[in-house]
């Protein structure tokens, strides 16, 4: 896993980056009724957008438990996108209103903990907005590209100069233990 040195700015450029070692992994949770249909429309309309996104279809954005988002990061995602119907359009009338509160709070919480805000995105995309969908995806991919690979759950490497003191250094007790397990996880999480 290597960090790319010069990060491309434009999404057109991104498509040319196939030979680069690192491609972002982005998990997208789409509601069945609007955003998924919107993505489908983008496909049938032959709109091109960045392919680094992995779509998981859910019944409603209200179904997206904040744990899904956290778990995605734990399992190796570099970014997460959640998309649902515009307010007022929810198939279940109010699901996205409830979801909106949860997302607002989750976003604040994990950004407070120090998560890069470029990694977590929310959008409203209706079934008619195929072009908006492609724009959203390109923006998200761009942002995650700029944020780089997510290494927040790798064991921190503290140099002596780091202001924050070395923690109860579990890695040193069982020497290769953590390096070993994290390596294993990242091998399964990422190609």
């Amino acid at each position: 896993m290597k960090k790319i040195k010069d990060k491309p700015q434009e999404s057109e450029d991104l498509l040319l980056e196939k030979d680069r070692l690192w491609q972002p992994r982005i998990v997208a949770f789409l509601c069945n009724w609007c955003s998924y249909a919107g993505a489908d429309l983008a496909g049938t309309s032959r709109i091109k957008y960045n392919p680094q996104i992995r779509i998981i279809r859910v019944p409603c954005s209200g179904r997206v438990n904040p744990l899904f988002i956290l778990r995605a990061f734990i399992d190796g995602a570099d970014g997460v996108l959640v998309s649902g119907c515009h307010p007022g359009d929810c198939h279940y009338s109010t699901g996205n209103y409830f979801a909106r509160r949860k997302f607002a709070l989750l976003k604040r919480l994990i950004e407070f903990c120090g998560m890069d805000e470029r990694r977590i995105h929310f959008s409203w995309v209706s079934a008619a907005e195929g072009s908006k969908w492609s724009q959203v995806v390109n923006d998200v991919v761009n942002a995650v590209y700029q944020a780089g690979p997510f290494t927040g759950f790798d064991l921190p490497v503290f140099s002596k100069e780091t202001e924050i003191e070395t923690p109860a250094d579990l890695c040193k007790q069982g020497p290769e233990r953590f390096a070993y397990s994290i390596d294993l996880m990242s091998r399964t999480g990422k190609k």
Binding site: G114, D116, T162, E163, I164, E165, T166, P167, A168
Partner: peptide, 19 residues
């Protein structure tokens, strides 16, 4: 704490949660 840059905040919690 909130004035700290995000990487420092993340490192702080890594440090704490490792304990």
């Amino acid at each position: 704490f909130e004035k700290m840059p995000s990487e420092k905040r993340w490192a702080f919690w890594q440090n704490q949660f490792l304990k």
